[in-house]
């Protein structure tokens, strides 16, 4: 049995990154211009999914309110733009901080419960955030808010340029993904999985369970906030529907079909889901029907997520 992956498996992520980076340059000649925006959206959702996979797959916290933090990030950008802020980095950073702060408060309360109660309470919090957004008439309420002025990225660039935003998103997504891989094999990652697998034993070993879970929850919320901020720049529009609970559920399903607790689970699930939806929409307006059937098929064929199909046999015990 091989311990280290072969050169192909090792270089695959780099090839993927390279081709993604070159894609906007090649797209016009291939008549695929539209898909630059599609992939940009995909990369943003991947960040949110990866952060959810971290607390759900590695931490065993079944949260059904993750899109709430995406919304907090998006509305932070709205509030700042409305207040006259023009720096993209400033707005995005603020979104991370505010979403992290919301996650700290929501996590501090929710993490006192477990299992289905945790799920319900995170759902309740995200519904509260959704209703709060609906009631914010200054930011358009139910109708949402359009971001007209571009946010400045420095050196004369701004987020209105589709390719520039694409590359910024790609760089952030790659950075975040690399960090999440490292996190998984760090002390913190092992501790989090230990708590998922056997919380009582972890407590008896001297681990501060609550603090470790809360730290993971805050980190995941902050990253979801970044995804929300980028989504605001991507769409130039934010409405309360980004934080509707069905968005949280979709995110959860994406992670599950991708591969719970597997490093490529988030990206694979998002890519699969959004691509399927995109393809089916070409053929029919009623794309949810075949989508549902395909999902059932996927779950039966790969109950541990599509990523598990590409894993070699596990190292023999």
């Amino acid at each position: 049995m091989k311990r280290a992956p072969g050169w192909l498996a090792r270089s695959l992520p780099w090839l993927l990154l390279l081709s993604l980076a070159l894609f906007p340059l090649l797209a016009p000649s291939l008549d695929l211009d539209y898909y630059v925006g599609f992939i940009r959206h995909l990369l943003i959702v991947m960040m949110a999914a990866t952060s959810l996979n971290f607390i759900l797959g590695y931490g065993g916290m079944v949260a059904l309110g993750h899109s709430g933090f995406v919304g907090v990030g998006a509305y932070t950008v709205v509030a700042l733009v409305d207040g006259g802020v023009t720096s993209a980095w400033g707005a995005w950073l603020a979104a991370v901080a505010v979403a992290g702060a919301f996650a700290a408060v929501i996590g501090a309360v929710s993490l006192r419960t477990r299992g289905v109660y945790f799920l319900m309470i995170t759902l309740a919090f995200s519904q509260m955030l959704h209703h709060l957004a609906v009631s914010l008439s200054a930011y358009g309420g139910d109708d949402g808010y359009s971001l007209h002025a571009p946010l400045l990225l420095g050196v004369g660039l701004d987020d209105a340029h589709p390719h520039v935003l694409y590359w910024v998103v790609l760089a952030l997504a790659a950075l975040l993904f690399t960090f999440s891989c490292r996190l998984a094999v760090s002390r913190f990652g092992y501790a989090l999985r230990g708590i998922r697998d056997n919380e009582t034993r972890m407590a008896a070993l001297g681990y501060p369970i609550y603090r470790i879970k809360l730290a993971a929850f805050i980190g995941a919320g902050a990253v979801a906030g970044l995804a929300g901020a980028l989504l605001a720049s991507h769409n130039k529009f934010v409405s309360p529907s980004v934080m509707h609970w069905t968005e949280s559920a979709t995110l959860l399903v994406m992670v599950v079909i991708g591969g719970l607790g597997r490093r490529w689970g988030g990206p694979a699930g998002v890519a699969l889901w959004l691509t399927l939806a995109e393809v089916l929409k070409l053929y029919t307006e009623y794309w949810r029907w075949p989508m549902g059937l395909l999902l059932v098929l996927i779950v039966f064929l790969a109950p541990k997520g599509v990523v598990s199909l590409f894993e070699g046999p596990r190292r023999a015990g």
Binding site: R182, L183, S186, R187, F188, Y190, M202, G206, I212
Partner: peptide, 13 residues
């Protein structure tokens, strides 16, 4: 658990 902080997240264990 005994050896220092378990909040280290950048170094490979």
């Amino acid at each position: 658990a005994r050896a220092g902080s378990s909040f280290r997240c950048l170094r490979r264990r």
